[in-house]
């Protein structure tokens, strides 16, 4: 389905055409759902939360001034709503020692990844990403999949740009290390 610019729908909604909001929901639902599920990691909770995100966005739409992209504004609501939900339960913390992170060569891991089939590559990546803490999983997804800029990620998460940069660098390192371990195990399994 081809969508128009967000501003077109926003103007229609502001003019009282509520049904135009369904187009915005349709356009952004998968990304909002992805953000929420990356943090909550539960489909049941994620659906309810993602619905709440859109409801909040609808109710606050008159205050949206268009200074940033609508998607950035919407994702910040999604991020904050999901984070608020997880406040009661402890977020998963990093379990990888920073010293270990730097003890390998990225080229070596890239090389071993290219030796895998595309399906195996995706499988390894999924495993490695699922092993990341919720927030880190989301940051790397926004950066590489959504191709959000560091400034946009900073707006969505409320972190400073320099903090986002440092975190992304560490997450990348961590992912490479996790991939290295996963590949090593898989290669050992293949050898048997």
């Amino acid at each position: 389905m081809a969508f128009r610019e967000d501003q077109y729908y926003i103007e229609r909604i502001k003019d009282g055409e509520t049904s135009a909001f369904s187009e915005l929901v349709e356009k952004h639902k998968d990304w909002v759902y992805t953000i929420v599920i990356r943090i909550l990691r539960s489909h049941e909770e994620a659906e309810e939360t993602a619905q709440d995100v859109f409801l909040k966005a609808y109710n606050s739409l008159k205050t949206f001034q268009g200074k940033s992209k609508f998607s950035t504004w919407l994702y910040s609501i999604a991020y904050n709503t999901a984070i608020t939900k997880t406040r009661k339960r402890k977020l998963k913390t990093s379990d990888l020692d920073d010293e270990i992170i730097y003890n390998y060569s990225e080229d070596e891991i890239s090389k071993s990844m290219y030796e895998l089939s595309p399906e195996e590559q995706q499988q390894s990546l999924r495993k490695a990403m699922n092993d990341l803490p919720e927030e880190e999983n989301l940051l790397i997804t926004l950066f590489y999949k959504k191709e959000n800029s560091i400034a946009e990620i900073s707006e969505i998460t409320g972190m400073s740009s320099s903090n986002v940069k440092v975190k992304l660098h560490r997450i990348r390192k961590k992912l490479y290390e996790k991939l290295r371990i996963i590949n090593k195990i898989e290669n050992q399994e293949k050898a048997f």
Binding site: K29, D30, A46, A50, Q122, L125, I140, T141, R172
Partner: peptide, 17 residues
């Protein structure tokens, strides 16, 4: 990493969302 993550599928919102 960039290549692989870019190729991953987005989570799909449930039907009737």
């Amino acid at each position: 990493l960039k290549k692989l993550i870019a190729e991953t599928d987005l989570e799909k919102a449930p039907g009737g969302f």
